[in-house]
Structures are given as structure tokens and as C-alpha cells.
Design a protein around this nucleic acid. Sequence first.
DNA 1: GCGCGTTTCAAACATCTGTTTTAAACTGGC
DNA 2: GCCAGTTTAAAACAGATGTTTGAAACGCGC
Lengths: 220, 220
Amino acid sequence: MRKRAASDEATRIRLLEAAGPVFAAQGFHKAKIRDICARAGANVAAVNYHFGDKLGLYTEVLRYSVSAAVLDPGLITGAPEAKLRGFVHMMLDSVFKATRPAWYMKLVLQEMSNPTPAIDELVKEFIRPRYRLLCELIGEMIGQSRNARITQLCAHSVVGQARHYLIANIVIERVWPQFRFTPDELEELTDHITAFSLAGIKAAGKTRKKIRSKSAAWGK
Amino acid sequence: MRKRAASDEATRIRLLEAAGPVFAAQGFHKAKIRDICARAGANVAAVNYHFGDKLGLYTEVLRYSVSAAVLDPGLITGAPEAKLRGFVHMMLDSVFKATRPAWYMKLVLQEMSNPTPAIDELVKEFIRPRYRLLCELIGEMIGQSRNARITQLCAHSVVGQARHYLIANIVIERVWPQFRFTPDELEELTDHITAFSLAGIKAAGKTRKKIRSKSAAWGK
DNA sequence: GCGCGTTTCAAACATCTGTTTTAAACTGGC
DNA sequence: GCCAGTTTAAAACAGATGTTTGAAACGCGC
């Protein structure tokens, strides 16, 4: 019996490459395996043969592209402000890039909106490390632990803003038709979210101190 | 021929009342009309008889509950800061309220994430007026038009934050298990988003002025 | 070139779910 | 109390779509 050799996995690879953009654009449920197979030039049965079922393919797509170095949090370096911008940029950048690593963020956002059983692995392998990074960054800014409530609230404020633009396009284009996702406007948007959040984070840090001194004033 | 009298619409009303929470919790596609009919104590054919099809029922549910005064932005009064908090509260409050008017916000958020053909009417009748209100509010704060880019960017920053908590619970509970949607924490969250946004908006106003004076310095 | 495990393919299958059908039950007016 | 129009009910229907089947094609080692 011959084990699966690299050369034999051509169809498997083609399926993974074809499925990524489809799942990223349409989400798990709306994506049709007949569509994916057509793009991959493969028979529908190939999905079952190579991955067991649709969810198996989906899970493998997630694993297959999580290694994309472009999204490596290690790339985000420098001053806290620059790091924050790097984080926001990482999230928004995926709008344009159609290359393999980039649609991964769309996959993540799809999964956040419409979770599948793959959510657990995705959280563990991708989301949690980046969430932690963001919390450490914010905590550092306001002199709080990364586990502090205020720190995590701020983290979700940052993520929420970026996410909004990536998944609410249909509504945004109706209430604000002038807004377009050109590269220039993406930069503008990145700058806005960064500046807006920076101010919000600083204010949160001050409020926290205020509350603390207030408690101190009340005595113990 | 007898026209549809009020007393004849018992089934119709029961269907609308039963469908609201189901659509709000699961969205249009995941909601099953057999489930809705079972809750309403009606036959599946009743949906087609009274509303034509599933989308007809969905659209009527949207119309049926849009009049809910709880979500009336006119109720949001006071200083700009208080108005902003009122707006945020309006969005978040729907998490708990299981009463008729309250799950409407969930319907709106579902529609924003997974639009149906009903999106146009929803934008026109519900979203746009509130978006305009928010923009006027923010514009007033930073001395800009409600149509200014910076104003609208800030508006989306506010909406994005609130929306995040209402639709990403699955992820939030995994990266931050301690967070719960108790009434107290909902107040805390409302306060946080308001304060965070207030700081962000003020900073955006200042940046704008800075840019303007910079342009002025460059001469014309 | 034979044999055996591997891979591909077209077709059939199964299920879920919105929709339609057809007849029966009901309701109010005469 | 019957009739016309209205409403309800159970069942059948139809389309989309994930899954399985069984046979054919392939490819490597002997």
C-alpha cells in the first residue's frame, strides 16, 4: 500500500486553493461544494474522498492558510501607537488582497458572524493569540493588566470598529454611498480607527485612575 | 365577498408574534417556517396563505414591529453626551428585553450581517433616520457637517462597537469567558462605549482642526 | 504487461425545507 | 339550514445541495 505522496495531492491542493476564496467570500453555509469543485476542476466526490465532508474541507482550509506569515503578529513592532495601527491595518488589509494569505481575515470574520464547529480551533490557533497581543498592547498604554476589564473592553472597541467595515458593506454603501474601498480610503480608514481608538484608550486609562482615586477618597 | 376583518387575523397576528423572536435570534435563512408555525400553533400553509411566502412574512415582521416606540430616537434628548449614551443604550438594550419591541434591534443587526431583499426598506424606514440622527449629533460635537467624512467615520466607529457585542458573542465568550451580559455589565458596557467614543470624537474634531490650520498655513 | 491499491468520475441517493395542492372545516348572511 | 367565500389542515411536491455508490481510469512496483 502506498502512502499519500506529495505528487498525488494535486487535486487536494487545488481544492484547498479554490475553496479558500469561496468560503472567505460567502461563508461556510452559502458556499457550495459544486462551485468549489468546478473552480478546482475536480469532481464533487473528491471533497468526500480527500476531506471526508464539507466541514472537513473547511477545517483544512482554515489550517492550510493560517500559517500565512503576512498576518504574523510579530510583524507588528515599534511604539504602541504604531503597533495599534499595525493591528488595525492587519484587519482591514484583507479587503483588497486576493492573494492566498489575505482572504484569511475574511474567513475569520465570517466565522465570527456565523460560527461553525471549526470556531474552537480558529479561536485557539488564530484569534486568541492576536487578542492577547492587542490586550497586552492596550494594557501597556493605560498601565493596566491585559486581563483588566477596561483593557478588554477597549480591545473589543478596536476590533468592533474594524470588523464593522468588513462585514457591513451592504448597509454602509446605502447610508454613505460616497464611501468606497479604494486603497487611499483604506489608509484613511486605518488612520481614523487608529486615532479614534488611541483617544478612546487614553480616556479609558484616565477614567480608570479617576475612579480609583475616587474610591480612595471614599475611604475604606 | 367579505374583506379581511380584524377578528379574522388571529392566525396572522400569531404568526407575526411568533416569527419575530425566531428571525431575531436565527436570522432569515436559519429560521425555519415549520418552527415558526409550530410556535404559532398554525399550519405551514398559513404562511403562504397570509403572507405569500417566507420573505413576505419576514418583511411584514419588520414592518409590524418597527413602530416600537422604545427604539424611537426622539426619546433621546439632553446634552450631546447624554444623547450619545442614549443612542448606544438603544442599540445594546435589545440584548435582554424579550418583549415585542426589543428584539427588533436584533433583527436589524441580523439583516446588516446577512442581508435579504428587505434590506432596502429597512434602511429607508429605520436605519437611515437613526444614522442621520447620530451624524447630526456627532457633527454638532465637532463642529462639522453631518455629511463630513470625519463625522461619518466617527458614526460608524460608534455603531461598529455596539454591533460587535451583539453579534460576536460566540467569540467574545471564548476569549473573555468572564464577561457576561448581566444588566449591570450592560450598563458598564454602555458607559464604556460612550466614554470611548466621546474621546474618539473629540480627538477627531481636534485633528480636523489641526489639518485645517495646516492647510491654512500652506496658503492658498 | 499484470496486479493491486489509489484516484476520478457520472450518476444516483438522501435530506432538508420552502411551496403548492386539494379537500375539509368554518363563518356569517340570507 | 344552506350557500359563498374564507380559513385551516395534511399531505404531496419540488428544488437545492451534501453525500454515497460502483465502476472505470490511473500509476507504481514487480
